[in-house]
Design a protein around this nucleic acid. Structure first.
Lengths: 206, 206, 206, 206
DNA sequence: TATGAATGAGCGTTCATTCAT
DNA sequence: GATGAATGAACGCTCATTCAT
C-alpha cells in the first residue's frame, strides 16, 4: 500500500482508494458492534458513501468480510513466524499468547476476526482458522518436543482456549486480566518438575 | 381443533400450558439450529401452533428468547447450589466446571444461552451473567478461603474462561477435550505446594 | 370454485379469497399493460393490498403468472374439446380460430397469456404452449384427414400464426379485422377444388 | 489509451465514429441476447469502451435503442423501394413478404426491432411502424389496383400479420416455415378466379 | 474526449407484529 | 383462546445516470 504511492502511474484511483479504506474501517466498526450482523447499508452510511460504491468495491458481503479480516489474521501469523526463531520454545509460546491477547485487545477488527474464525463457515472463516492453527502449531510443536509441555493438549486446544478467553468478555479493558488468565492456563500446561529438582531449585533461590 | 372447543371449559389452562411448553421446546430447537436467527413463524410451526398463539404467550421475540434461556441458566445455578454443600471446596469447584462443560455440551439451548450471557445487552443477558457470576462466586470464595487457589484470579475470570472454552469450538463432540482444558486451567490456578510437602506426598505414593 | 361455496365448512377464507381474486385481477391488468414486466409492488398496489399479502398468496412471480394465465389457456382448451364434436372438421377449425380471436380480443389476460406461451421459458409458458398445441391438433388432424386442408402446414404453424395475428396489433378494437385475417389464412389453407367441381357448384348456385 | 491523446488532434472524428459503430453493434448483440433487457454496462463492455463513452454517444438508454433499431427498419424500407419498381405487383408483394421473413430470420436485431414496432409507444416504435406501414402500402396499393388482391384487407393488416408470424415463433430455424405461411396467407388474399377462367387454364395445362 | 467510480432510486423478498375471524 | 391472513418497514442488490479525473 505504502509502496504504491510511489509508483504513481495510475492516478484516478486516489479517491477510490480512500473510499475503499473508509469502507474497510466502517465495516470493521459496524461488524464489531453487531457481531458481524450489521447491514451493508449501515456500513456504507458509516463510511459516508453510497451503497453502490460499497458494492463496486466489495461485490459480496463475503468479499467485504474477507478484506476486513484477512489482514488482522495475517498479523497474528506474522507474529508467530517471528517468535518461531526464539531459542526458548516455551517462552516463545507464552509470548505468542501474550501477543495475541494484546493485539486482540487493541486492534479494532480483531475480536470480530476471531469470532468469525470460530463461528463462521465462509471462506474467510476457514482461512482464518487454518492460518491461526498453523501459527499455533509452529510454536507448540517445539515446546512439546522440549518435554516441558503436556503433550495431551493440542495446539488447536490452546488456540481455541485463548480465543475463547478473548471473546468471552463483558467488560472493556480486559487485556491485563486475559493475559493473566492465559498465563494461568499455560502454567497448567507445564509438565510438573520432579519434586527433587523443584527442591533443588528452591534451595538455589533461597 | 373443533373437538377441543367442547373440552375448553373443563380445563382452561392445561392446553395453554402445554402450548407454552411446546413453544419453548420448539424455540430452543429452532434457535439452536439457526444460531438464534430463526423466524418466529418457524418456531410456531415447529411447535405445531399458530403464530398468533406464540404471540399470546410471548408478546415479543425478546420475551421468547428470555423464557427459553432463563431456564438453561437456572439449571447451572441449581448445580452450583448443590455443590456448595460439598466439603472439599476445590473439588466442588472442579465438579462445577466439569458439570458446566457437560451440560453445555449436552443440553440443547445451553450454548446459545451462554453466548447471550456473554454477548448480549438485553435483560436476559444481564440476568444470565449475574446469575452465573453468583453461582461461580458461591464455589470460588470457599476455595480461595481454603488457601489452595490463587486469589488473583476472580470468579468472573474463571466463569468467562470456561464459557469461552465452550463457545470457541469448531468441532462437534468437544465435551472430553474441554473438560481436560478446564482441568488444565484449574491446575494452573492451584497454589503450588511447598516442595517439601510435595516431596513428602511423592514418597507416600512410591 | 362455484362448488366450494356450497361446501361451507372452511369459513375464515372469505376475505382471503377476495384478496386472491383482487390480486389475480390486478396482476392480469398490470402484466397486460407492461407485457408481463410489471413489478409485484405495482400488482399489490393495484389490488389494494400490502406486498406481503401478495407474497403469501403467490410465493414467486412464477406462481402468480401461472395462476393468472392457466385459467385463460384452459378456456381455449375447453373450446377446442367442444368443437371436436362437430361434424364438419373444417368448419370446426374455422370456429376455433374465430373463438380464439374472440376470446383473446375480449378477455383481459389472454393476450399476455399468449405472449408468454410464445415467449417464455417458464413452466407456465411450456404448459400453455403444450396445451394450445394439443387443442389445435385435435381440430387440425380431422380437417387434414378430410382431404380439404393442405397437409404441409402443421397445427403448430396455424397456432402460431393466429397467435401472431392477435399479438401483432397496435390498434384497440381488432377483433373484426383479425377474424377476417384468420379467415383469409384459412382460405389459403384449403385445398383448391378441382375446377370442374367448382364449376358445378357455381352452376348450382346460379 | 495514453497514446491516443497525441493522435486525438489529427483525427478528431475517426475514433468517435468507430466507437459509435462498435457501440451499435454491441448493443444489437446484447439486446438480442437479452430481449432488450441488457444493461448499458454490458453494452459498453462488449463494445470495449467505458460507460461514459456510451453516454456521450447516446445520452439515454432510449437513444441507443432508437439508433440500434432505426437501421434495421430502414433496411426493410429500402427493400420495399426496390421492389416497387417491379412490373408484377402481386409478385412484388410476395417478394417483399419473402424478403421480410428472410431478413428477420437472418439479421441480428430485426426481431427486436419488429417487436418494438408493434409493442412500444416510444419514438422509435412510432417511427418503425410508420415506416413499415408506408413500405407495405407502396407494394399493396398497386396489387389491389391490379384487381388480383382482395381489397378488404389493408396493407397494415398484412404487415401486422407477417410481423406476427415472425414474432410468434418458439423454434429456432423458422425461415422456411414462415415463408410458407406467408405464401398461404397471400394465397388467401388472391381474388378467386372465375371458374370458367380456371377451367380454361386447367385445360391449357392438361 | 474517454474513463470508470459514485450515486441512489427502486425492485424483490423477508419477517416481526397486528388484527379480523 | 387460537388461528393465520395482512401489513409494511427494512434489507440485499441492480443499474441507469452523473461527474470527477
Amino acid at each position: 500500500m505504502e509502496r504504491e504511492l510511489t509508483t504513481a502511474i495510475r492516478r484516478p484511483r486516489a479517491d477510490s482508494l480512500r473510499n475503499r479504506e473508509k469502507l474497510l474501517a466502517a465495516a470493521a466498526a459496524v461488524f464489531r458492534e453487531t457481531g458481524g450482523q450489521g447491514t451493508l447499508e449501515a456500513v456504507a452510511r458509516t463510511a459516508g458513501v453510497g451503497i453502490g460504491t460499497l458494492y463496486r468495491h466489495f461485490p459480496t458481503r463475503e468479499a467485504l468480510f474477507e478484506a476486513v479480516y484477512r489482514r488482522e489474521i495475517d498479523q497474528l501469523d506474522d507474529l508467530s513466524r517471528e517468535l518461531a526463531e526464539d531459542d526458548d520454545p516455551v517462552a516463545a509460546l507464552r509470548r505468542f499468547l501474550h501477543g495475541m491477547v494484546g493485539m486482540v485487545a487493541t486492534k479494532k477488527g480483531m475480536v470480530a476476526a476471531l469470532a468469525i474464525a470460530i463461528d463462521g463457515s465462509c471462506d474467510i472463516a476457514v482461512y482464518s482458522f487454518t492460518t491461526l492453527s498453523a501459527a499455533m502449531q509452529r510454536l507448540h510443536e517445539p515446546a512439546v518436543a522440549s518435554g516441558r509441555l503436556r503433550p495431551d493438549v493440542s495446539a488447536d486446544d490452546i488456540l481455541q482456549t485463548v480465543i475463547g478467553m478473548c471473546l468471552a468478555r463483558r467488560e472493556d479493558r480486559w487485556e491485563g486480566a486475559v493475559t493473566r488468565l492465559a498465563d494461568v492456563f499455560l502454567d497448567g500446561l507445564l509438565v510438573p518438575e520432579a519434586p527433587a529438582m523443584a527442591l533443588r531449585r528452591e534451595s538455589a533461590r533461597g
